[in-house]
């Protein structure tokens, strides 16, 4: 790739990143441009994925090799499009019915296995090594079992949570909150990692080799916002807020 294209890429990357980040200040034309570009690019990407990864290898290639059975699921898929023609929209029900039936058939056994059996086995199994477990490991296994029962009770809808039931349910909430706290911290760390990635990209675009793309775009946007705040028309919401 030529140097010119690399520099153009850096300007585009920095410009779109800063345009999206500008939403943190307020809605603005730069964000709108980036938003619509992102939307269009995303759909364009998905369209080509559908053509080259689904339609091509899963329909066109098998049919061209004489595998005519592929036409049956293809027709069911196409039947969904009849939703756009009111007179023919009843045909789409066959496709939808198949999707719902297939989805349920796939989900129910898997849910039974993962939500019931795995949960019970995962809670009970650690104690099968009780003879060789340390006191702390036994306490840990019992605590997990106690937590499972209390949390499940919180989600029990058939009885009113009053008296002793309320206490068990409340303990369940505490267990949930401990989990949510840990999940929150974990996810925030992951998000910071993404943020660092963008900052790293902006830093790379700010070099002299890229003609200070980050600094120039950032400065340009700041100037726009300053000028707009002085000379721009006040929107109805801003006008109301000023009163």
């Amino acid at each position: 790739m030529s140097e010119t294209w690399m520099i153009a890429g850096a300007w585009l990357s920095a410009g779109l990143t800063i345009a999206i980040f500008s939403f943190l200040y307020k809605d603005n034309p730069f964000f709108k441009i980036a938003e619509h570009l992102y939307l269009g690019a995303g759909m364009g990407w998905l369209f080509q994925v559908s053509v080259f990864s689904v339609w091509g290898p899963k329909i066109w290639t098998p049919v061209s090799h004489g595998d005519w059975l592929v036409i049956i699921p293809s027709l069911m898929g196409i039947s969904l499009l009849t939703q756009f023609i009111p007179k023919l929209s009843w045909i789409s029900r066959y496709g939808f019915t198949f999707i719902m039936g297939y989805g349920s058939g796939l989900a129910i056994p898997a849910t039974l296995s993962t939500d019931f059996m795995s949960q019970i086995l995962g809670t009970v199994q650690p104690l099968s090594l009780m003879a060789s477990m340390s006191p702390f490991a036994i306490f840990n296994a019992l605590l997990v079992a106690f937590g499972v029962i209390c949390v499940l009770f919180y989600f029990f809808f058939s009885v009113e949570h009053k008296g002793h039931f309320q206490k068990v349910s409340n303990i369940g909430i505490y267990f949930l909150m401990v989990y949510f706290g840990a999940a929150f911290g974990n996810t925030v760390m992951a998000r910071f990692s993404l943020l660092y990635g963008r900052f790293d990209s902006l830093y790379a675009s700010s070099s002299a080799r890229n003609f200070y793309a980050t600094q120039i775009i950032l400065a340009g946007m700041v100037i726009y916002f300053v000028l707009h705040s002085f000379f721009g028309k006040k929107g109805p919401a801003e006008g109301e807020a000023a009163h």
Binding site: D115, F116, Q119, I120, T123, V124, Q125, L127, S128, L129, M130, A131, A141, L142, A145, V148, I149, L152, F153, F155, F156, F157, S158
Partner: peptide
């Protein structure tokens, strides 16, 4: 929803009696 509650009851009882039985079984070999 009642069936879901039934499922939760099954899990709670299974865990409760399961850990008792497994713990005793493991301890007594």
């Amino acid at each position: 929803l009642k069936v879901q509650d039934f499922g939760k009851l099954v899990v709670m009882l299974s865990v409760f009696f399961g850990i008792i039985a497994v713990a005793i079984g493991a301890k007594m070999h």
